[in-house]
Each structure stands twice: as C-alpha cells, then as structure tokens.
Amino acid sequence: MTTALITGATAGIGAAFARRLAGDGHNLVLVARNEKRLREQATELHDRHGVEVSVLVADLATDDGIATVEKRLGDRTHPVDLLVNNAGFGNKGEFLEVPMADELTMLKVHCEAVLRLTSEAVKGMRERRRGGVVNVASVAAFVPRGTYGASKAWVVQFTQGVARDLAGSNVRLMALCPGFVRTEFHERAGMGTDNIPDWMWLDADKLVDAAMKDLARGKSLSVPDPRYKALMGVAKLAPRNLLGGITSKTGRKYGPQ
C-alpha cells in the first residue's frame, strides 16, 4: 500500500484529499496544528476505510514545524508516495492594512514550506522512480491580487518548473488552482462571504476528484472546474492594467468585509 502525506489536513481541501485517498486505500500521514482534530480525523478514516493513519502535529509557520515534516518525508524506511502541500491561509485587509509579520508568515507557509517539503519528498521519489506532489495554489495566482495572489503565483511557477526538470523520472508534480471553495478558509481569516455569488462556490470533494484525474493524466496545472477555466481564459486575454483594476474592485467586493 502507498502512503500519502497531507498538510492542512483537518479541514477543507486537505480533509477532502484525506477522505478521497483513504477511500482509494492509501495509508495517510495527516499534518496540522490541532492535535485533537488530527486524532479524531485519523480514527474516523481508519475505522471507515481500514487504512493506517498517523498524525504529525506541526506548525508550518515555524522552522521547527517545517523540519518535523521534512524529517518524516525523508524517512526511507516508510516512504511517502504522494505529498499534498495544502496548508495555507488568507489575511484580512488590503496591502499596508495587514501587519508585516502576517505577510511574512504567509510567505513562510505558502512558499518556504512548499519549497522545502517538495524538495525533501522529491529526493526519495526520484530514487524510487515513482511518486507525486500536489501543491495547492489558487486561481488568485493568475490575477494581480497582493501577497496572497503573489505567493500562489510562486507556487504555480515553482511547481511547473520542477515538473519540467523532473520529466522522465516518473515523479509527477501538479499545481492545483481552485476558486472559492466551501471550507473554513474565509471564516478563519475573518472574511465575509455573503456577497460571493452561489455560482462561484466549489465543492471540496468534487474538486479533489477532478484534481486526482488531472494528476493521473500527468498535468502540471489543474484548474478543476469549467467555470473557472473560462474565467482564467478571459483573464489571459485582458490587458494587465485593466485586469488589475477589475481584480482590485472584485477583491473589495468579494473579499474581506
């Protein structure tokens, strides 16, 4: 049986990946900060699917937390075959309204942790000539929207670049770029969601199903919904200065309240 490690595993997209992968028969390593929630989730997935589920309490906003997960990924006696870098968060407010410490923490989680964990995982995968990494980004990567969008753009560029470097190694890397997903993300950031149109919301389980199909097809980029594929097509055609103004207004309309 293969093993998948998922960061940010206790809620939202991470929890959906855990359910899907456990249902497919993968053993799991679940990573998050809340030990109680991790253990409850591990027990439920083990009892329901009969897979082995271990938990790793780690805060990826800290060097110690990242190092803890790196150590598990580097364990050659219990290899990880699929890494899902899902941990992430949003900050409420526009640029200069958000404390610099919070901006730097976002870069730590979204960029440094993804870089270090991907690197550690891929070393063993390349040696074994099998494995995969899914780095959860966002459609915000494709529009000019502050630190969050910039960090997710980095995830996309990094993932696709590494995927190109590892071509022929049987190691697959994919950046997953969802839109609005019904999770705890906005609540944790203190963002209002009442003014987000219903058609823009995605279901986490359906999103993960689409993502796993794209990974199996060998895609290095997944925008797993026709609605968002269409929106991203329009974004590519729009002039950058016009797009910047539109996305800024959209951010104020659909973002923090």
Results as ranks from 00 to 15, higher is better:
Trp201Phe: 11
Val29Met: 12
Glu97Asn: 13
Pro99Val: 13
Met106Ala: 08
Gly14His: 00
Ala16Thr: 05
Gly192Arg: 08
Ala141Gly: 05
Gly23Asp: 01
Ala238Ile: 15
Leu117Arg: 04
Gly218Ile: 06
Leu176His: 04
Asn34Glu: 15
Ala16Val: 07
Pro256Ile: 07
Val98Ser: 12
Arg240Trp: 14
Val80Phe: 05
Lys213Cys: 10
Gly90Arg: 09
Gly255Asp: 05
Ala211Phe: 03
Lys108Asn: 11
Ala216Trp: 01
His186Trp: 11
Leu237Ile: 14
Val51Phe: 07
Ala15Met: 01
Lys249Asn: 10
Ala211Leu: 05
Gln157Lys: 15
Asp165His: 13
Glu40Pro: 03
Lys229Asn: 06
Pro197Val: 09
Asp165Asn: 15
Val69Cys: 03
His49Cys: 07
Thr43Val: 00
Ala167Trp: 12
Ala11Trp: 00
Asp47Ala: 06
Asp225Cys: 08
Lys229Glu: 15
Pro226His: 09
Gly190Glu: 09
Asn85Ser: 07
Gln157Asn: 15
Pro256Cys: 02
His49Asp: 03
Asp63His: 14
Val114Gly: 00
Val136Leu: 07
Trp199Pro: 04
Cys177Phe: 09
Thr62Glu: 12
Glu103Leu: 13
Glu40Gln: 02
Met174Thr: 02
Phe158Thr: 15
Arg37Met: 11
Val223Lys: 08
Asp194Asn: 05
Gly88Leu: 12
Leu166Gly: 13
Ala61Lys: 12
Phe95Glu: 02
Ala18Leu: 09
Ala216Gly: 07
Glu103Arg: 15
Glu97Lys: 14
Met100Glu: 12
Phe17Asn: 01
Lys229Ala: 11
Ala67Pro: 06
Lys71Leu: 07
Ser119Arg: 14
Arg116Ser: 01
Lys108Leu: 07
Gly161His: 14
Arg145Phe: 11
Arg130Ser: 01
Asp102Val: 10
Asp47Arg: 07
Thr118Asp: 09
Ala58His: 01
Met191Glu: 13
Pro224Asp: 00
Tyr228Pro: 00
Val114Cys: 06
Glu52Leu: 14
Gly218Met: 08
Val57Lys: 14
Thr7Arg: 05
Thr193Phe: 09
Leu96Asp: 12
Gly168Phe: 09
Gly88Ile: 04
Gly255Ala: 05
Thr43Tyr: 03
Glu94Leu: 15
Thr183Gln: 02
Pro256Ser: 06
Leu221Ser: 02
Ala137Glu: 01
Leu56Glu: 09
Arg172His: 10
Leu83His: 09
Ala22Pro: 06
Leu166His: 13
Ala150Gly: 13
Val31Cys: 01
Val98Phe: 10
Ala42Arg: 03
Gly131Trp: 01
Ala238Tyr: 01
Lys249His: 11
Lys206Ile: 08
Met174Cys: 05
Val133Pro: 02
Asp24Glu: 13
Phe158Leu: 15
Glu112His: 13
Val122Gly: 04
Leu215Trp: 12
Leu83Asn: 10
Leu83Ala: 11
Lys219Arg: 10
Glu40Lys: 03
Ala101His: 10
Val29Arg: 11
Gly161Gln: 09
Asp24Thr: 08
Glu103Asn: 10
Tyr254Gly: 02
Leu28Asn: 06
Leu166Ser: 08
Thr147Ile: 14
Asn170Gly: 14
Gly132His: 02
Asp81Ile: 00
Asn241Phe: 14
Arg19Gln: 08
Val122Phe: 01
Asp225Asn: 13
Lys92Met: 10
Lys92Ile: 12
Ala42Phe: 02
Ala18Asn: 11
Arg217Ala: 14
Gln157Met: 15
Val53Tyr: 01
Pro197Asp: 12
Val98Glu: 07
Gly149Thr: 13
